[in-house]
């Protein structure tokens, strides 16, 4: 059978695959290695040491680096609020469309994917007047950026949840729960959400990664987040700015690996016994 499948879908050979991975890996590795090398430079005298890394991890940074920690705090807060906005708005909408209004499926997909086609700079032009209203309603706290971020993470979050949703027969499960006496909230929280765990985790992680890497909207709306803080600090001490950029990159990388592992893991179970018919 596997041979038939292989015949039908001929993939690249083992060597070709390694070459592709090697070339792409090199492409990504060069700037990362260059950044690391840059942070290890001693100064104009030449040579390398770990003094800047030690200073970052031992808390030996002066008050001029405070914007980075403020930005990091803001970004983490934004990540949490963005994930909350995304989960509260997107998940019930997607489930509702799936169960009750399947004809709206394409429309929802289109709406969710639109933000990926609009450059952030264009988005900000549209968001500026919206944010004057938001400022009146909710104040100008940095967390309000999460409304905008909720929009930019939509395409990624939608895809992650949709993939999971397509693999679960939510219509039948919800009907079974209804026939057993469950109301809609019970169905959502006790039947559907537990079965969308992988999709929701993936959507949350990818949202966090997007928020931590966001610069344009925060900069143009005059808010401080990790990326804008790095730009500020970069002007005074590019070495430390690059260290934090590397750390943010490593964090995003870990998140993506986690998403991959969640997606690839079989359904949770204590055993894996498949009984005969």
């Amino acid at each position: 059978m596997s041979r038939i499948v292989a015949d039908v879908h001929p993939g690249p050979g083992r060597r070709t695959r390694w070459i592709i991975i090697g070339v792409i890996g090199l492409l990504f590795l060069v700037p990362v290695v260059a950044m690391i090398e840059f942070t290890l430079r001693k100064g104009l005298g030449g040579g390398y040491d770990l003094s800047r890394w030690i200073a970052v991890f031992s808390g030996g940074l002066g008050p001029e680096y405070k914007p980075i920690f403020t930005g990091l705090g803001n970004s983490l807060l934004l990540a949490v609020v963005t994930v909350a906005v995304m989960l509260v708005l997107l998940v019930p909408t997607m489930v509702l469309v799936r169960i009750q209004f399947p004809k709206l499926q394409r429309m929802l997909e289109f709406v969710c994917l639109v933000p990926i086609t609009i450059p952030a700079i264009v988005l900000v032009v549209g968001l500026a007047p919206v944010y004057s209203v938001i400022a009146r309603l909710f104040g100008s706290g940095v967390w309000t950026l999460a409304f905008a971020y909720g929009v930019i993470v939509l395409p990624y979050a939608y895809r992650a949840i949709q993939t999971n949703l397509a693999a679960v027969d939510v219509v039948t499960l919800s009907e079974a729960a209804r026939s057993l006496g469950a109301g809609w909230l019970t169905i959502l929280f006790r039947v559907i959400v537990p079965n969308l765990r992988r999709g929701l985790l993936a959507a949350s992680f990818i949202s966090v990664a997007v928020v931590l890497g966001e610069f344009t909207i925060a900069a143009l709306l005059n808010r401080v987040n990790l990326q804008t803080a790095l730009v500020v600090v970069n002007k005074a001490d590019p070495f430390v700015a690059v260290i934090f950029a590397l750390l943010a990159l490593a964090f995003a990388f870990v998140l993506l690996i986690a998403i991959g592992r969640i997606g690839g893991r079989p359904h949770s179970s204590h055993r894996s016994k498949k009984a005969p018919a």
Binding site: E175, L180, N195, S268
Partner: peptide
């Protein structure tokens, strides 16, 4: 509504809640 009709139903497609054990499925109602 369906949940108030007191009707038991078995579906054509497998409709057990995948995140629950067989016992927890039966306990659901």
């Amino acid at each position: 509504p369906a949940r108030k009709r007191d009707i038991g139903m078995v579906f054509q497609s497998y409709s057990l809640f995948p995140h629950l054990t067989a016992l927890a499925n039966v306990e659901f109602g």
